[in-house]
Nucleic acid binder design. Structure first.
Lengths: 205, 205
DNA sequence: GAATCGCATTAAACTAGGTTAACAACCATG
DNA sequence: CATGGTTGTTAACCTAGTTTAATGCGATTC
């Protein structure tokens, strides 16, 4: 991963390498377009436990993770938390749907590890969409990816029991198993830590 | 709704009115672009119970519904069905994610009423994306809408019990309550008809 | 090295919803 | 009219997962 000690230095170097690689791979923007895109980003660092966005706040920024791990989670009125997803290195993240619908965020985003990001205001990014079709395409591809992931998850909730969902989680995110506390995994699966513990015990035998 | 008796007449009239209105509202294509878009569509009719796509088939076509109602549903290995969503008049429908991932469809699409549609092959539509940015934008907007809907549904499965999900369904789709059999609603909510019947009884008192 | 904190495990009692089956209401059809 | 097919309701029993609480245990802090 890119080293990120200094969050105030000028753009154009190490911290943009990963972002450029991802964007190039998706839409291959011409150089001058990349420049106007890159200009919109600046570095941001989150300590473990720190929030990127909280329920009820307007969704202004989104980000690209250079290093670290964040979780997205809902809260019930009684305070129970439900993890909705995780984002890690080389992934975009933000309350995109909240921005699109112009509503306050309905979930929190919180760093689970020290997290180094590049962030940008969403509205100037959206303005880029009209400036060159490659950005419109980037928007489309990201929305499609989000949709595919959600559809997958919907299928699992409808078709699979908790044990099967856990097995799929392990297959799909083998690295996350070790980076996440078990109660975070349980919450993602839609069950309690108690139930997950039972499932784990059953699987070992 | 548009009358649709004759499915073989030339394009350019009544049956394209609704589609044009929706597309104009979303992306306002220039006239010659609309022409090349419209050319890709032709009429298709589904009898009640007929399938638009089945699990395992490649996803070649998608459609726009002029009149009628279809359901999307998964099947468990043991044959139980789970409705994933419904589409009705003035909505697009198809196994879009299956097309994007180049995989066979993972769910069925079946008409619940006589359904009049305009359908087009997906691949020439995708080719249009590079021809004019308005189509890229249309793709983005539709993917965004799909995503927002799925995220909503994910939140409900995580946060709400079956009774609350039923209440939201009634608020959100008041018209569908009467057009759908109760076991289809139950299936959409992720519960059995028996459980839905219990909930309805409880609500009446 | 003792005390504390956060997390995983286990057990016991409980509950939402599933499963099965019987029955009633409502059609369509011959 | 009788008959059968389809849908909704109800009841009895079953099960996956919740809730609460106690126990253990490794990591930090004093």
């Amino acid at each position: 991963m890119v080293s990120m000690e200094d969050d105030t230095s000028e753009p154009g170097e190490a911290r943009f390498v990963a972002l450029k690689a991802v964007v190039d791979h998706l839409v291959a923007p011409p150089e001058e377009q990349w420049q106007s895109f890159q200009q919109l980003f600046h570095a941001r660092f989150l300590k473990e436990g720190e929030y990127f966005i909280r329920v009820g706040e307007p969704s202004e920024y989104f980000g690209f993770i250079n290093a670290g791990l964040v979780r997205f989670f809902y809260q019930t009125p009684r305070g129970t938390e439900f993890n909705k997803s995780f984002s890690q290195e080389n992934q975009f993240m933000g309350a995109y749907s909240a921005f699109l619908t112009n509503q306050p965020a309905r979930f929190n985003i919180q760093a689970l590890e020290q997290t180094h990001m590049l962030i940008a205001k969403i509205s100037p990014i959206i303005r880029l969409f009209n400036q060159h079709p490659c950005w419109e395409k980037l928007g489309r591809l990201l929305a499609e990816q989000l949709y595919i992931k959600k559809e997958q998850r919907e299928a699992e909730f409808l078709l699979d029991d908790a044990e099967t969902r856990y097995r799929h989680f392990l297959e799909h995110y083998p690295d996350l198993e070790n980076r996440l506390a078990q109660y975070h995994i349980a919450s993602y699966l839609g069950i309690t830590p108690v139930a997950l513990s039972r499932i784990r015990k059953k699987r070992k035998s």
